[in-house]
Nucleic acid binder design. Sequence first.
DNA 1: ATCAATTCAGAAATCGATTACATCCCCGTT
DNA 2: AACGGGGATGTAATCGATTTCTGAATTGAT
Lengths: 353, 353
Amino acid sequence: MPESTRRRSRASRGGQFCTIKDVAERAGVSTATVSRALSGGSVREDLKKRVIEAAQALKFRPNRAARNLRAGSTRTIGVLIPDIENPFFTSVICGIEEVVQAAGYSLLLANFNESPERERALLAAFHAEGVAGLIFTASCSLTSQYQPMIEAGIPMVAVSRLPGRLKVDQVTVANEEGARAAVAHLIGLGHKRIAMINGPVSVSTAEERQRGYERAFLDAGLRVPEDLIVHCDFRQNAGFAAVSELLERSRRPTAIFAASNLLTLGALEAIHQLDLKIPEDVAIVGFDDMAWAKSLRPPLTTVAQPALEVGRSAARMLLERIQQPDTPRRQVVLETTLIVRASCGAGHASAKT
Amino acid sequence: MPESTRRRSRASRGGQFCTIKDVAERAGVSTATVSRALSGGSVREDLKKRVIEAAQALKFRPNRAARNLRAGSTRTIGVLIPDIENPFFTSVICGIEEVVQAAGYSLLLANFNESPERERALLAAFHAEGVAGLIFTASCSLTSQYQPMIEAGIPMVAVSRLPGRLKVDQVTVANEEGARAAVAHLIGLGHKRIAMINGPVSVSTAEERQRGYERAFLDAGLRVPEDLIVHCDFRQNAGFAAVSELLERSRRPTAIFAASNLLTLGALEAIHQLDLKIPEDVAIVGFDDMAWAKSLRPPLTTVAQPALEVGRSAARMLLERIQQPDTPRRQVVLETTLIVRASCGAGHASAKT
DNA sequence: ATCAATTCAGAAATCGATTACATCCCCGTT
DNA sequence: AACGGGGATGTAATCGATTTCTGAATTGAT
């Protein structure tokens, strides 16, 4: 009878072969001693050895759920992002993973696909799951959803986008300066009719990049060409449509500043469809330096964000806050750098002539 | 005294405001009744209502760790992949997420960066974490690491790469047929000196794609040009180096078949650096249809894998196996499709003339 | 009206690891 | 020799939700 019970429970326990009790029995000590022996309490050497041997023989793995319950906390970090398929976020995740893994935490990942409802649901799931901390990029439409978790005292770090007036640590990049540098570069090459395709202004990154665009004109003593600023969502199709429209205007822009990687791809598609030459007919600068940027012909001039480092910083900040919850709030802003390739007619291409 | 104890414990519990006990007290019932009322047991209507109100008033969230401990299983699925920054895997994850989320599970994600040691460590972490199931793409060098988890009865699904002789469910794509179609396409356009840059043969996808390459030649009654097959790792730089070397040979290949997305990017870089024209000087076919493929000039002809669907299938299979552990082992092979664009001189480009 | 059957709430056991507390033993000191 | 202190071990409580078991109450049937 105990035999059969035993077997059933092992199977239902998803691969748990034995508990601390079994180890204790085999080693001839109490469970307390086993626990102490395995997690660094003071235990007589010979007993410790016996325990360790028993544990190995039985392939003992402490049950995480029991441990979490007792400890009142988990070793998992939640990551909530708008779009896993966007390589920028992928790199961020990669950076987070690196740091978090090294610290012995696991990563719970959720993708809300820019949908505020899913964002809310996933947030609730993370809360229920009892994550030790959360790294997130909000959809920005309703950041108040995050309030309950903040009040619950769960450490959180916002990444890339500023989450309204939530009081949390933040890691962002110098969007305004990056955009300014990109547009200034175009202006320096003689462009005046420079269009910008941008995401929704409700998202802080879009707003900041637009400010950079405007500042570049103001710095150069030029009027900001408001009619050349187009807003759409951050997807490739939207960028394609927006740029197609721009390029079919009677006075076509001579250059395009695309405010994100997917918008850049859409823009390129539109340019190619009209059989225009880059940079002779239209120059283009992108945002985000992706793996494919230098494989384009001509290679793409773009504003690079240190995505990996964004992830790493966020993870480090989160771990620090988990250890010391009461330190003052911090905001880290990482540099962006303009990478000049050939898609504006400067750099490599001109150097070649 | 109870006051201060209370406060400490709330903080240390990471945002847990109240337990089932508090709800029971407030509703004037026992904890058993609360549990039943909230999870569909039979409870008198008025009591049920009182419990639900109390739970809402106190913002009660059942502690997941306690639940997991009691249930002997978790609601998390582990995903172990070689490289998050590879868009193919990102899409797979996206597909997995979609299905798993809908079923009320969470995703534990880990990236081992093609390093077998990390693979082993992460696998152990997943095992300890008590995941309800695992979806993985193995590094293939030492699949025996997975044996303990299999023996422990944890449901597993292998994705994309065949994991040696592990007895697990599998989801792959028709690599051989995809590669054959791609190379046959090139042969049909008159190419004979077709090079292949491929990943390490130890990886099943690389081996299968190579078989497809060879078959295309054999089918056409041609000799397989062994000297034009180059192996390297799956990264962009490796592809760049390999193709640079190929193109500098005295009798340069007239076409290139790149067996993965990153290798394709490397190949493009090399082609551009030598200022060769696509498809006039070199034709190219890639593997994997990425977002950027149609924004290239000329747009890339490539073998598309249904990455999202791979993820979805894997997730569905895993969930099914979690519910019915004893069904026979299954292998799903999804179709690949050759997407003809202009990088080989066929399709759009020729249609235009 | 009485007894059986059925329903439903509560008390208590349970999951597995950790840890506060009690106990025991050994050694040193007076 | 007796007492005290310190270190190590075992016992049992604990974490929070679920579930079995028990007892009570209600319903229906005769």
